[in-house]
Design a binder for these strands. Structure first.
Lengths: 202, 202
DNA sequence: AAAATGTTTGACCATGTGGTCGGGATCACG
DNA sequence: CGTGATCCCGACCACATGGTCAAACATTTT
């Protein structure tokens, strides 16, 4: 069917997806334009549509690749590990993703804000079942007295909220902190470790 | 100059702003169209532009009204009150706003995601100075040993993140919880009270 | 070098979009 | 009533946008 892509194909597909990520993550699907993406990628608009059949297809490709990356840190939560250590590790991995891939975080946020028209099935399927599985693990830890008693679902939501906030609301965080108060992500790391340590200790 | 608006003016301006809030909050400024807003408001497009000079003006009107509402709960944080009670009260007021005004929350989120092109001055001015003031109050409580030692800025950020998450990511929260697990906001209320009680106690 | 394949783009099209305009419908008020 | 002000909208405009196409250009293969 589709044999190896040429070097040019690999380079241009990559350039397009990078450019599209930047534009979609800032303006959402409907607010983004092909001209903008083409300019950002250094290609002509018809050339975009040589590599992808439509605007929709570019967006779908981005989202498809995104979900796996996004769930990986939670998937790594190990039921056999030391509970507080595992949960703190998850928090820090997620915060590092916000620091290193802020555009991916914003792309996801935009999709959800718009009502998740394109990834609702994945939310109700893959995402839900992974969260169900890990929530059970956490509930087990709580029942065994290895962490404090807590609603595991809202614990997971709170980790998402706290870590993604530093990517999605980056400009607000920086506007409030000003220039003098150090890197937001370093402060966030210390704060979140303190917060979850205090909350989880049995 | 502009004497009392007639009853019709009040009704239509209101209908337009309500409709625009719904549309802008879902699609962002660029993704929203006047036709959509007009349809939602039950008016013709030219009639929209009879009441507001441009799409931009509608959006600005919404944002201008928003910031005050948005800051009110933080402004109500009383330096003379009992610290934990004050902070828990702030959390619950903010969560109630997410429940009762989710569109406003999403409108704000969209604006920040897009880099805050229209309210950056307010963020660096009004918002920053209010946060600076309240952070000082919280730091004072911590120094006096009335709450646990904590970074007051990130404490405020965490309250924003945790409460707004339930409005902005509502569809995701509901997709993961499914139908059987009760109202997200009730669960969130219990969870957040527990979380902050544990974290703040000296 | 020529043929075959893969890549690029200028010109173009249909539709969508923000915004205007002139005139008609409706209202407030004497 | 009547009449002036307010309110409403069909038709229209200029431009942006997603997408097409044929022809030119480049690269690989034989």
């Amino acid at each position: 069917m589709s044999p190896e892509p040429t070097r040019i194909q690999r380079r241009n597909r990559r350039a397009i997806l990078d450019a599209a990520l930047a534009v979609f993550s800032q303006h959402g699907f409907r607010g983004a334009t092909l001209d903008q993406i083409a300019a950002e990628a250094g290609l002509s608009k018809p050339n975009l549509l040589y590599y992808f059949p439509s605007k929709e297809a570019i967006h779908e490709t981005l989202l498809a690749g995104l979900l796996e990356t996004w769930l990986a840190p939670l998937r790594a939560l190990d039921a056999e590990g030391e509970p507080v250590e595992e949960l703190l590790g998850y928090v820090r991995r997620k915060l590092a993703m916000s620091r290193d891939f802020p555009c991916e975080s914003r792309l996801f946020a935009n999709e959800i804000l718009q009502g998740a028209p394109r990834i609702m099935p994945a939310l109700e399927g893959e995402l839900k079942s992974l969260v169900d599985e890990k929530a059970e693990v956490i509930a087990g830890w709580a029942a065994a007295g290895r962490i404090a008693d807590i609603d595991p679902y809202h614990l997971i939501f709170s980790i998402w909220a706290l870590t993604q906030h530093y990517a999605d609301f980056d400009v607000q965080v920086r506007a409030v902190l000003g220039t003098g108060r150090g890197d937001p992500f370093e402060g966030a790391d210390r704060y979140l470790v303190t917060l979850f340590t205090r909350m989880l200790r049995p």
